[in-house]
Amino acid sequence: MSLKVTSYSLTIRENNKQILENANLELEPDTVTVILGENGTGKSSFVMSLLGFEDYERSGSVMINGVETINMDTFEIARLGLFVSFQSPPEFEGINFEQFLISAYKAFNQDTTTSIFKIRKSIKEKIEKVGLSEDFLKRDLNQGFSGGEKRKAEILQMLVLQPKVAILDEVDSGLDIKSRARIAEVIREQAKAGTTFLIVSHSLEFVRTLEPHRIVELRDRKFNEIEISEIERLHYHHKKS
């Protein structure tokens, strides 16, 4: 198992809202799992909580690649190979995107031996896959990025960092049809290359293109397995978007 959440209870400290109660979720290696759920059920809170931020009160167990992370610091959890995309990533003045990717690659993988030139080369190879141009790398990180550019930038980070587990939170929203298809392809490819995916999305169309192995629904503070054929009945989804 790549990610195993057991008896997990989760409350948002700020408003005392309980999101999960004794919930369980286990992801098999190299699979794609989709989480669905109505607005406000706490899908984003759940995925962010896995990074160990102090905004959440939590109990139970979160194993990443066999290591218990419930009491770990964010950076230690990340270094185990967990990547979570941000829906509203913060902006950084004076740190260009490429420079950030290099720092992040080294920190995330605790890699001090790979040369900067090699990392740069790998970034350049990946940038086309997400549909961004090379001059994009010279811009300050997230500064003035459009919604779509932010999503693509998060995907590019995932590709550069090569995590064992990648959690992508609504990375398809705000993307045009072509970009969405491209991202779905990147995810499928990356899953084959050895990354386990957990995807949060509201777009049924996107979910279908992903060809996920499993779908779970977050409802009543638990994860419930649903059949792929069942997703049409979930009235809260955009049939088209």
Partner: peptide, 24 residues
Amino acid sequence: KYLMSRGLDEAEAYSLIVNGFIDV
């Protein structure tokens, strides 16, 4: 938080931000 979620420890995150701020 963002930088730490990418594997930088707190000190590394602070210095990246400060070095970015004084980049000019």
